[in-house]
């Protein structure tokens, strides 16, 4: 196996919204709370979690030391530029996701 074990950092990608996405954010917060370095990227339907006030799970994740970004293309594609984003959430693109994915020691988990 050539997978990176143990992980030096996690890259979590959330493309869904709703109850199962809330559970994934709980996973993310647990990892961050345990001291793991965690990057979370919200794309596709997952951008709904990045709207201000929507996700307590995102707030908990950021409070536990996680870092989160939201996909610029999805915001443009879905006409969400006017939507207020959660504090602490940054906008970025697929280029950054690719860079993070390619970093040695990254474990990626996609929901």
């Amino acid at each position: 196996m050539t997978q990176d074990l143990p992980a030096e950092q996690y890259l979590l990608v959330e493309t869904r919204s709703g109850d199962t996405a809330d559970r994934f954010l709980a996973d993310a917060a647990a990892l961050a709370g345990a001291g793991e370095r965690v990057r979370l990227f919200l794309a596709a339907d997952g951008v709904a979690l990045g709207i201000r006030g929507v996700s307590a799970g995102l707030t908990r994740f950021l409070g536990a030391g996680g870092q989160a970004w939201i996909d610029e293309f999805t915001l443009a594609h879905r006409a969400l530029h006017a939507a207020p984003l959660a504090p602490g959430l940054r906008t970025t693109g697929m280029g950054d996701l690719a860079d993070w994915l390619l970093e040695p020691g990254t474990r990626v988990v996609w929901h």
Binding site: D45, A48, F73, A76, H77, R78, A79, L80, H81, A82
Partner: peptide, 17 residues
Amino acid sequence: GTSVTAALAGAAPPPAL
């Protein structure tokens, strides 16, 4: 749901992919 933004005025055209 996710279709509500179809109603918004002033949005830019969808980005090219």
